[in-house]
């Protein structure tokens, strides 16, 4: 079995406009890959397509989890297959508490007739909240409703930790975070790093990668990866700016 998240020659469009144009990527378990690039190159589209969003049209290509193509599956099936997407803009769900939401998500993974053990569930929830320095009172608040940017992102990482996915896709998790929140969120992610799990960290800025140190950095431009390297590449990008990417690769992709 192939233990990786693999995207093969993916072409995606929305409203007749091509966004992903032959995107290729392999993230093996145990590794953290960063995907960087200027705005509007298709980073968030990639994240949503992998999670099964129905607004996008997949023209061709595959997204394989452990060798199995997940394109065309329902978002909940993809979630059960082990892919977690930490949203750039998490949705507010009024009246549904964090505790009940995560519990429902865990319950949905159990075979029919099996019930979550409530005591063990709360034990695990509180332990993970402590690690993310979240107040326990938080569990009773409505999911993301009236949360600050930092609270929303911490809540995404809490869900990720509780659902124990094999493949974590994090879409601009650093946006809207101050430096303290950034550190706490990163520590939460680092605690989850393991041989059995892969991360794809989508970000616009190098700053996040000081805390979540990637094994590989990819640069995306105009719907595909144009350059890959180690963590130093992120720093190079930071100093040279994305104009450098545009100049270096605009001609190549034309």
């Amino acid at each position: 079995m192939n233990h990786s998240l693999e995207v093969k020659n993916l072409h995606v469009s929305i409203d007749g406009q091509a966004i992903l144009k032959g995107f290729n990527l392999t993230v093996p378990k145990g590794e953290v890959h960063a995907l960087m690039g200027p705005n509007g190159t298709g980073k968030s589209t990639l994240a949503k397509v992998m999670a099964g969003h129905e607004d996008y049209i997949v023209e061709s290509g595959e997204v394989l989890l452990d060798g199995v193509n997940i394109l065309g599956q329902e978002p909940d099936e993809i979630s059960h297959a082990g892919l977690f997407l930490a949203f750039q803009y998490p949705m507010e769900i009024p009246g549904v508490s964090i505790a009940n939401f995560i519990r429902a998500a865990k319950q949905a993974r159990l075979p029919e007739g099996e019930e979550i053990n409530a005591i063990e569930y709360y034990k695990e929830l509180y332990a993970k909240m402590d690690a993310l320095k979240m107040d326990r009172k938080f569990t009773a608040r409505s999911l993301n409703e009236g949360f600050s940017g930092g609270e929303k992102k911490r809540c995404e990482i809490l869900q990720m930790a509780m659902l124990d996915p094999k493949y974590c896709v994090m879409d601009e998790t650093d946006s809207g975070l101050d430096i303290d929140a950034l550190r706490i969120v990163s520590e939460g992610v680092n605690l989850m790093r393991s041989e059995d799990r892969a991360f794809l960290v989508i970000t616009h800025y190098q700053r996040l990668l000081d805390y979540i140190v990637p094994d590989v950095v990819h640069v995306m431009f105009d719907g595909r990866i144009v350059h890959s390297g180690d963590k130093e590449l992120a720093k190079e990008l930071e100093s040279k700016g994305y104009d450098w990417v545009k100049e270096a690769f605009a001609t190549a992709s034309a």
Binding site: A51, P75, D76, S79, P90, M91, E92, F101, A105, K106
Partner: peptide, 16 residues
């Protein structure tokens, strides 16, 4: 639809 997508990404069926 975005709220439903968000919840389904966490593993809930559309009905749930």
């Amino acid at each position: 639809a975005e709220q439903i997508f968000y919840m389904m990404q966490r593993g809930l069926s559309e009905g749930e």
